[in-house]
Design a protein around this nucleic acid. Structure first.
Lengths: 343, 343
DNA sequence: CACTTGTTTGGAAGTGCTTCCAAAAGTTGT
DNA sequence: ACAACTTTTGGAAGCACTTCCAAACAAGTG
């Protein structure tokens, strides 16, 4: 029975008061080394385990952080989560996970995280923060950092989406393409909007005029459109329209790019010979399929998110900080650059 | 300031005792409808939020389940986790996640989960349960269910690995292959061992003799070997050995199969024309790459895992239950069956 | 109407910690 | 040896609940 040993038991066995026991257990000063050792020995002998919730109640802090994270955008978040987990357990916090499978669970998860005293901070991922929750969040003063999404009111860690899209598109243009299409996700997603902007700017700076007909978002796709099906459908729209297929595509995520490539090859277009493709994210699988893409430093973003949150917790009045990482271009085969060089 | 409203405030405002407030808030019987309404109204007016940890302390239960899950085996667990999350939040529990990036974190995470009163139950995923932890786990009587791994001492939800491997291998044999290789993960992993057995049995029942030289595990691979690199390396071993390439492979996971296919095609073997490949898991990407594979019902496994855990919690003396799902064969292009039929 | 039975209510005690304050013990200086 | 500090210690109070017991009240009975 490793069960119910409390500080009172330790106090009795060690012939000290509970205050002293508490001080020893928390490494507080003002206890003589002898007493300290005696108490520690008893604690070990009795296999004492502190009661987490009693401690949290008394200390008025929870030692936990909750993460609200879309489960439907699998491949990005899982890599960020690794960074989060490493950092968080290094700091001794607990991670309570609210995995959103369906977008309207968001409000209720935020509410749960907001329960008095429940968590010390929130990480909110990849989704648009519902406007109507902002006042409540502000009011409770709960530290929160946004990852892969933005709001002027909260700290955030994100990637320079426009810049990345600009670089990707430019890469394609510099490879000699004048007709560059884009496969985008739904514009409800902030990153999708920014990536579209970057794409447009790249065309513009190279004197190519923007044509709406070259930008497609697979219709009828679940959630935010950052998924394989959406990419597939987007290409099928070109094919079904009978409109001419661009010779190059910037695709707003790697996972969509998989669908794009599948649709292209099913319809007789070789990648990169007939159509060049550049993705975004650099998920683990991008390497496997030799996709040229914009790398987001996902693991580091996770680590930094926790660091930022902890800083904010111990320093609530700090100015709001937005950190953006610059994505880097990873050249693989799908853009055709390598083959070209070999000629 | 939505902050510090306690039941005492409500009691005062509603001119009742704290006992009554508690009864109303918890829907306990023995309060007249009028009083009940009055208290409820006050609670709403003051925007009362119960303090999670005070409640957990007093009730002596945590409303929390923790999941210890390998982050390095990405694609399987993420789908299971969706089922877990849906069921868990439907029941009103919290999920605290211990993501294992490195195998020797396991002990410390188990210890954390074991802290007195901290969680009501544990889900342990995909990893071999360390033998040395078993006595402690038994002693604390904390309900635990294993998912995708086994131990006679605890409930488990898993997949009939041997059976699945048997079916996959048999499928290949029935397609006419007499030389069927296997790419396996490290034998430290229980599923890997079972899948090897199923493979052997399939050969045996079809009168094909087992040859050790046809089974490879990529050496030098991180963690348990269920990753793309390991698959890639396994094939490279065949190539570097100069040994003859089998005409068909059963691969112990889809993610390894991706590596296998990459290695094959880099070395001039077409899939499925030259070498047929069958995987295991049916992760989302298997569809994208048209991989024939054994499907594990991952989402359902997650749901069932929570259901089992909850049952066990309310019924500690129930007999230990091992549930195995049968994987089903999903035929796509990588095994060559479809093409063959078209002839 | 007195008595029993049943329902509703208040609040003390308990949950296991931390923290603060005052008392006890120890040190130093003269 | 005593005053004046300083260090160490014990334990009450507080954290925000639940639960139990007894008191108060209401209703029913002959």
């Amino acid at each position: 029975m490793a069960s119910k040993v409390t500080i009172y038991d330790i106090a009795r066995e060690a012939s000290v008061g509970i205050g002293t026991v508490s001080r020893v257990l928390n490494n507080h000063p003002g206890v003589t080394p002898e007493t300290r050792k005696r108490v520690k020995d008893v604690a070990i002998r009795l296999d004492y385990q502190p009661h987490t919730y009693a401690r949290r109640l008394a200390r008025r802090q929870s030692e936990t952080i909750s993460a609200i994270i879309p489960f439907f955008t699998n491949y990005f978040f899982i890599e960020v989560l690794q960074g989060v987990q490493d950092k968080i357990s290094q700091l001794g916090y607990d991670l309570v996970l609210y995995g959103v499978n369906n977008i309207d669970q968001v409000d209720s998860y935020i509410s749960r995280a907001l329960q008095r005293g429940k968590v010390d901070g929130i990480l909110f991922f990849s989704m648009r923060l519902p406007e109507r929750m902002v006042p409540r969040l502000k009011e409770t003063k709960l530290p929160m950092v946004l990852v892969d999404t933005l709001s002027p009111e909260f700290d955030s860690i994100s990637v320079a989406n426009a810049e990345g899209a600009y670089a990707a598109t430019t890469h394609l243009i510099e490879l000699g393409h004048r007709s560059v299409g884009m496969v985008n996700a739904q514009l409800v997603s902030a990153p999708a909007v920014e990536r579209l902007q970057g794409y447009k700017r790249a065309l513009e700076s190279h004197g190519i005029s923007y044509s709406e007909s070259l930008v497609k978002t697979g219709a009828n796709n679940k959630a935010d459109g950052f998924n394989r099906e959406a990419g597939y459908e987007a290409i099928m729209e070109f094919i079904n329209n009978g409109s001419e297929m661009p010779k190059a595509f910037f695709v707003s995520s790697d996972i969509q790019a998989m669908g794009v490539i599948a649709a292209l090859s099913e319809n007789g277009f070789r990648v990169p010979e007939d159509v060049a493709v550049v993705g975004f994210d650099d998920i683990e699988l991008a390497r496997h399929i030799k996709l040229t893409t914009m790398r987001q430093p996902m693991y580091q973003m996770g680590v930094l998110a926790i660091e930022r949150l902890v800083t904010r917790m111990s320093n609530p009045d700090m100015e709001i900080l937005h950190t953006t990482f610059s994505p880097t271009l990873i050249v693989r085969e799908s853009c055709g650059a390598l083959r070209r060089n070999q000629n």
